[in-house]
Design a protein around this nucleic acid. Structure first.
Lengths: 253, 253
DNA sequence: GTTGGGCCCTCACGTCGCGTGAGGTGCAAG
DNA sequence: CTTGCACCTCACGCGACGTGAGGGCCCAAC
């Protein structure tokens, strides 16, 4: 099966001119030409185009895309993994922005004026994750201080939530670090972290016996929404955590 | 306090040339000029710039941005709300793409060849949510059929998850629809939906008495990750759901 | 006093990723 | 036979800047 430019264009939702352009710059050259000099695209070209458009959608320049899609370490599965991680990164970025907007809304409500530096922190670009953790705490501390002077008891629970989320992030970080070492989900350390995870839920959310905990573990890999959050921290983390939870439940029995 | 181009540039993380450009096209003109003809930016200019960069980051053309930031219905709170909704939309889009990538990975694992149309559905742009729901079901049904012929019992649980997620989406949709009518979270209908929500958890995840359910409700607004998911469906939904859950728990007592 | 460096200014041309014709070709249907 | 459609190749235009070129203002150091 082969396709003309027009067919490919409508399929992929781009213009013919775009395909011509990609041909011109050598990003996507049709596999062949018909007798009349018309471009003929094969399935393999469609795959490549799909990849190109994916990265384009995320704002990569064509030159960089050429490198990405022509990567000779071209295991297709590797491509997909890369796409997934690029996506989760981007999502994380947007979530940060959303959180910043929320902070701005609250600041407005309370009549707090942000410093000029703060106004642009939304776009915090370099994103060194180590610095980031500190930074957030500091910024929050700052804002909380202001707020405490305006509200009092009402602030209290919110403060708690911050600590709870920080603890959760801490546990997740430890899990990611453990994965880095190549440890198995059935290892002592992994089970201990799973237990820490469970304790955290028990303390701050609700009573969470092993049975419920394993239920949660299953959900972490099966439900898109939860899975995304863990996979964003580290690919494979959802499954790792589930297995560690199951191992931990098994040893307690 | 007023700032020079260079100061503004470093603050905002853009180049001086960019600020010149925005001046040229009238998107952001410095409030004043110094004796020597140098641009002098005030705080209000910084606010405007922040907004401009926000929309730019999300890929809006400058012309459109000019309209958005100059909107005379210019309640700043309204701006923030709009930014938030733009963000959640974008996040939802990326999550869809991520899900599509996952499907592609699974398809690969199972040796299923996607049809050319399917390959480009990732970018499904027009995104009519009604059609979308059907479409997904059909596509999944299709894929499942293929898969069933390859695997058997193993597929079974996955199928269940699909139904579970579909049910959850259904409940969420009903809640959103109810919100649309302006009903209070304490209304009969809202409480019934909260109960449906609880039952859903009981049936598919774990035993979820009212006490735990209200705990979940609190988490839906306090934890960024959960909140984002509900707010993406409809702004204010997280809080609405929490309140409905609390009302429902109260009436059962 | 002047020389230098730093930051600012205004043209003005270059780049990227296409959009948008202009003018020509191959071929199937009326 | 010509009409029409989808394709072809130039080639210029545009948005959002990048990147100098050439010059002005001001302060510090020699």
């Amino acid at each position: 099966m082969s396709y003309s430019v027009g067919q490919v264009a409508t399929l992929a939702g781009v213009t013919v001119r775009t395909l011509h352009h990609y041909d011109e710059i050598g990003l996507l050259t049709a596999s062949g030409r018909s007798h009349a000099g018309h471009r003929r695209y094969e399935d393999v070209d469609l795959d490549r185009l799909q990849q190109i458009l994916f990265y384009r959608e995320l704002g990569f320049p064509l030159e960089e895309i050429a490198v990405l899609v022509s990567d000779p370490e071209a295991d297709p599965a590797e491509h997909l993994r890369r796409q997934y991680s690029v996506l989760t990164d981007r999502i994380a970025r947007l979530r940060q922005m959303a959180a910043a907007v929320e902070r701005a809304m609250e600041a407005r409500k309370l009549g707090i004026n942000l410093t000029p530096e703060e106004k642009f922190e939304v776009f915090g670009p370099d994103y060194d994750p180590d610095d980031y953790a500190e930074e957030v705490e500091q910024r929050w501390g700052h804002t909380e201080a202001y707020r405490q002077s305006q509200r009092r008891a009402a602030t209290y629970t919110k403060e708690d939530w911050l600590r709870i989320n920080a603890d959760a992030a801490d546990i997740n970080a430890k899990i990611a670090a453990l994965m880095e070492t190549g440890a198995a989900p059935q290892s002592e350390e992994a089970m201990d972290l799973a237990e820490e995870h469970r304790q955290h839920i028990c303390r701050f959310f609700y009573d969470c016996p092993y049975q419920i905990h394993t239920g949660l573990g299953g959900m972490y890999v099966a439900d898109e929404r939860f899975k995304g959050n863990y996979e964003a921290i580290k690919p494979g983390m959802a499954a790792f955590l589930r297995d560690a939870i199951m191992a931990n439940a098994a040893r307690s029995a």
